[in-house]
Design a protein around this nucleic acid. Structure first.
Lengths: 240, 240
DNA sequence: CGTAATTTTGACGAAATTCAACAGTTGTGG
DNA sequence: CCACAACTGTTGAATTTCGTCAAAATTACG
């Protein structure tokens, strides 16, 4: 089971490692911890969310369905992420949120996230939103202009970076129990093709994936292959 | 030449039609109007923007380049859009902005966009950012799970909707001087394939495209083909 | 330990790309 | 206003990437 390892809360909003306890303490927020099974929807399109879900352990995703059953994952969520950020700020969801593995989430009543109560909190939420948007931009680049192998390589580099940020990576190795079918829906490929891509990366000695743990065997080479540049993940200042 | 037709400024930030004059008046902002040639970069990655570019006429885009020359457009900008919104709020750009046609832009010193001066303005910028993010999410769905024809159909539906919002559409017809090569870089296709897709849509009596003007001949059918649902463009409330 | 879910593999087909050539349009300077 | 050059659009043929279908092997889980 993935666990956030952290210590202080403002840190969470800064994407530095932190614990749920730290979060609650710093902003004096009530965080009710809940365990959610795999493949459970936390939010549906059109919903007007009452609580924010802070992901504490496990992996989740934002996604949209087409009428004929095609699914596209628009974001992969890792511990420390606010699953329904955009929906909370707009008071209405235009996407769904689903758990990809068993998860632990912290529920926070949205009334307690009011900008009126804490300008610092509002600013922190704004930074998170901009980071989500930067990640989405990079996914557009991947889906539009990278071939399958590069696309997978880029996603793995992104996940390693984001997980490292919350202290969940040791020696370029981290827990990763996402299904190949879920990877496919994130990467715009089929699960069959994802399987072949992973085989290629394995055969090339770039990754090692076994029993829910992924290791990047040669991160420099993988990042070169993916043309991965973490600049887009490092934008944290507040101009205005 | 495209022209914003509008009247009041708060309207711009609400994505309702408005004029540059209205904009300047309402928030008492200095807007210096400038004419920019086609294919001109307004912003480069890594830059720390000094002025915000409010697009007044023409079409522009945000894009990222890969080292080997592949280009992906991550957003198409129409009159009323703030070209460099994310970069302004973060005080640093992680993408480039380029004019796709000759454009008129209004330059606004970013110092005048400070949240401290006007909470209303800050809230409006936040709404714009969330709308940009919702559009990006939908692009991810298109790039990942729609085939070429659907992808093009969806983009045309989106552009019609956004242009209608600023009063630039009559009878599902609007000015569109974007190159097939630029469409390709937005849709993750090659220009050759874009040409074939457009031919299919023309042959199917779905669109008419001649001398820089695009007409959606059968919008209901086009929207069904694209599975276009404007819900994602209609989120304008402010929860917190 | 048995059932269901997931991963893996092969053969074949569809969508999109590449390469190449040519036609049409637009913009520019004389 | 014309002539030319440069850019943009159009089309065909061969190729690549990725998808579909199907089945077997492996793993996860109650």
């Amino acid at each position: 089971m993935l666990t956030v390892q952290i210590a202080d809360l403002a840190d969470l909003l800064e994407a530095r490692p932190l614990t749920p306890d730290g979060f609650a303490r710093t902003f004096d927020l009530p965080v009710r911890e809940r365990s959610i099974p795999k493949q459970h929807d936390l939010l549906l399109p059109g919903a007007e969310p009452e609580v924010a879900h802070l992901l504490l352990a496990g992996h989740a995703c934002r996604y949209r369905m087409l009428r004929d059953g095609r699914r596209q994952i628009t974001a992969i969520l890792v511990p420390g992420d606010l699953c329904d950020l955009g929906a909370i700020l707009a008071s209405r969801a235009d996407y769904a949120v689903n758990t990809l593995t068993r998860c632990t989430v912290g529920e926070i009543p949205i009334a307690r996230l009011s900008a009126r109560d804490s300008p610092d909190l509002a600013a922190a939420l704004g930074r998170r939103l901009r980071r989500d948007e930067a990640v989405a931009r990079e996914w557009i680049v991947s889906l539009g202009r990278r071939v399958g192998i590069e696309r997978m390589a880029h996603l793995l580099c992104e996940l390693r970076w984001r997980l490292a940020t919350v202290g969940l990576v040791t020696d370029d190795s981290f827990e990763m129990r996402i299904t190949q079918n879920d990877f496919a829906d994130a990467l715009g490929l089929t699960s069959v093709h994802v399987n072949r891509v992973l085989k290629y990366l394995r055969d090339s000695q770039l990754i090692h994936l076994k029993s829910g743990r992924l290791t990047l065997l040669d991160r420099p080479r993988l990042e070169r292959l993916a043309q991965f540049d973490p600049a887009y993940l490092e934008i944290w200042s507040d101009a205005l």
